[in-house]
Computed example of a mutant assay.
Amino acid sequence: MLRLPPALTASVLFALLLLAALSSIMLGAMPLPALESLLTVIDAATGSAFSNLQSYQQAVVTELRLPRILLALAVGAILAQSGAVMQGLFRNPLADPGIIGVSSGAAVGAVIAIVWLPASISAWSVPVAAFISGLGATLLVYGLSQTRSGTSVLVLLLAGVALSAFAGAAIGFVSYFASDENLRALSLWQMGSLAGSDTHKILLASATFALLAYAFQKRAGALNALLLGEADARHLGINVERLKLELIVLTAVGVGVAVACSGIIGFVGLVVPHIVRMTTGPSHKTLLPLTALCGALLLLVADLFSRLAVQPAELPVGLVTALMGAPFFLFMLIQQRRRWNT
């Protein structure tokens, strides 16, 4: 496949991201003019009064569409970067944050908070419960995979599969005792949605992305060394076991926050890093920031499609990413099979 310079790829992705964001502000059940929509965003940011839109139209932009865009950018970037890190850590392009039980563990905490914790306790109850549960599940899986010779990747993967199965049973158990209202909220949340975007979630997801982007980029060189194999990475002076623990915990933090803010959105962390890797190469120093841009773009486009496909209703964005990602995943499996047969 043709390799593109990272700077060119970043410029193209950034331009597409701006176009997708403008389209998301304009389009929907109530179409709005592009310039006036953009002026409304400027007014909201600066306190000016350039826009000529009616007050209810401005409310659609600032209270409904703009928060969704901001949350989609942060969550998409988190999921995509977490996927790139997991694929680099396990040296497998088919790896995903879900393989170590992060998503499933976070989902259990969020479901328990939705059903059994009153919303009046705190706006942070669901994110905190998802984060604690996801981190706990990750540390449990990591602890089970420890051997005298280090971390067993096979045991790590098997423990992640077992934990995912247990999490599915736990979610089913909690759902069985949920009220009809909670069941509706749970079903929508499990399919992934950005409709509940608010200031708390945007701040939490944005701060998490900023911290993870810095932490992951700082370890990009070590991840590149790990691609050569654990033995070679150790010879280069890298503490492989410490690196694994740090990356797994950081991924758990990111995915836990993403699940708490938007529900379960699959395939972003699997598909996006593979696309970027095929375009610009495997070096994590460029792969990680480009993956963040591409992940934000993919989730923003998926959310726009979910709002336009069945107007005035909307599809859960997790269904859209699954419809986009599943065929690509099958394509990747076919490609991998061809390599094994050659």
Rank of each mutant, 00 (worst) to 15 (best):
I132K: 04
S149C: 00
A123N: 08
L71S: 07
P67G: 06
F166A: 15
G150H: 06
F166K: 03
A159M: 13
S82R: 08
A45H: 07
G172V: 14
S145F: 04
L79E: 09
A162L: 14
A110G: 15
I121P: 04
D43T: 13
A123S: 12
P93T: 03
G101R: 08
L53G: 09
P127S: 02
R68F: 00
F166C: 14
A80F: 01
A129K: 09
L53V: 09
T138H: 07
S149Y: 04
T138E: 07
V85Q: 03
D180P: 01
A44Q: 13
V75H: 01
Q146H: 09
A74M: 00
D96T: 11
S103Y: 01
Q58C: 05
F173P: 07
S120P: 01
Q146V: 09
A59N: 11
S122L: 06
A84P: 08
A123P: 06
L66A: 07
L139I: 15
Y56E: 12
Y56T: 14
P97K: 12
T62V: 12
L156S: 07
Y142K: 00
I171R: 05
F131P: 09
I114R: 06
I78D: 03
F177E: 14
L66G: 03
L94F: 11
L94C: 06
V126R: 04
A80R: 06
S48C: 06
L71A: 05
L157Y: 05
I112K: 01
V161F: 05
A59G: 03
I114S: 01
M86A: 02
L53P: 03
F50L: 15
M86N: 04
F131N: 13
I171P: 11
G98L: 09
G76Y: 02
L73Q: 08
S51A: 13
L64T: 10
S55E: 15
L139E: 10
T46A: 03
S133P: 07
V174E: 07
V102C: 11
L135Q: 02
S164C: 08
I112G: 07
L158H: 05
R91A: 09
I121A: 06
A106M: 10
V41M: 12
L66R: 04
G168M: 07
V41L: 15
V75A: 02
T138V: 15
A178F: 01
N52T: 14
L135M: 14
L156Y: 00
V161A: 15
G168V: 04
G150V: 08
S152D: 12
Q146L: 13
P93F: 04
W116M: 15
L89V: 12
S122W: 08
A110Y: 05
V75C: 02
W124T: 08
P67T: 11
S133E: 01
A106R: 12
G109Q: 05
W116R: 13
A170R: 07
Q146A: 08
A45K: 11
V128E: 00
I121V: 15
L71Q: 10
G47Q: 12
P97G: 10
L139F: 12
T151P: 00
A84Y: 05
S149P: 00
Q57C: 03
F50R: 14
S103T: 15
S120Y: 00
S125K: 00
S164E: 09
Y56M: 02
S55Y: 04
V161H: 04
L73H: 08
G83D: 07
L71M: 12
A45E: 11
I100G: 13
V75M: 01
V128T: 14
T138F: 00
S179I: 02
G160W: 00
V75K: 06
